[in-house]
């Protein structure tokens, strides 16, 4: 069964500044609680979770114009996965970040989606405290 989860957060920081971190494929572990390591080799990325699980991913898109990053987890448990991060300007110094998770099996959308919610909160904290 297929499931989809979406979280969003408003940040008092320009979209360009937020994208500089959120769009950096190799920097995910700096703002995603529970991701402790992240290595990128071309379109392949491997993250390591806090419980020690390595999770290989394929980077599908890193569009600096749209400020959209898309990837998919390639771990066999997934029949389908797509993660999408959109950074959308809402003013000169404000933006909204939308983090969407589509997954089959659907339970993984909830599990990954729970992590992305924490990531958005941490991204907001870092961006606003360092401004």
């Amino acid at each position: 069964m297929y499931g989809s989860i979406r979280h969003e957060i408003c940040i008092d920081r320009s979209a360009a500044d937020v994208w500089a971190l959120a769009g950096d494929a190799a920097a995910l572990h700096r703002w995603f609680p529970g991701v402790v390591d992240c290595t990128v080799d071309g379109t392949n990325r491997v993250i390591v979770t806090g419980s020690g699980i390595p999770m290989p991913e394929e980077i599908l898109m890193c569009d600096n114009t749209q400020r959209r990053f898309q990837y998919r987890l390639t771990t066999p448990i997934f029949k389908h996965h797509r993660g999408t991060i959109d950074v959308i300007a809402t003013g000169d110094d404000t933006c909204m970040v939308v983090y969407s998770t589509e997954a089959d099996p659907r339970a993984m959308a909830l599990v990954i989606g729970g992590g992305t919610l924490g990531a958005l909160k941490e991204l907001k904290r870092q961006m606003e405290e360092s401004h």
Partner: peptide
């Protein structure tokens, strides 16, 4: 706190 926690985000786990 939730059991399914691959990111090890919850203290309980």
């Amino acid at each position: 706190e939730p059991f399914l926690d691959p990111f090890a985000r919850f203290a309980e786990n």
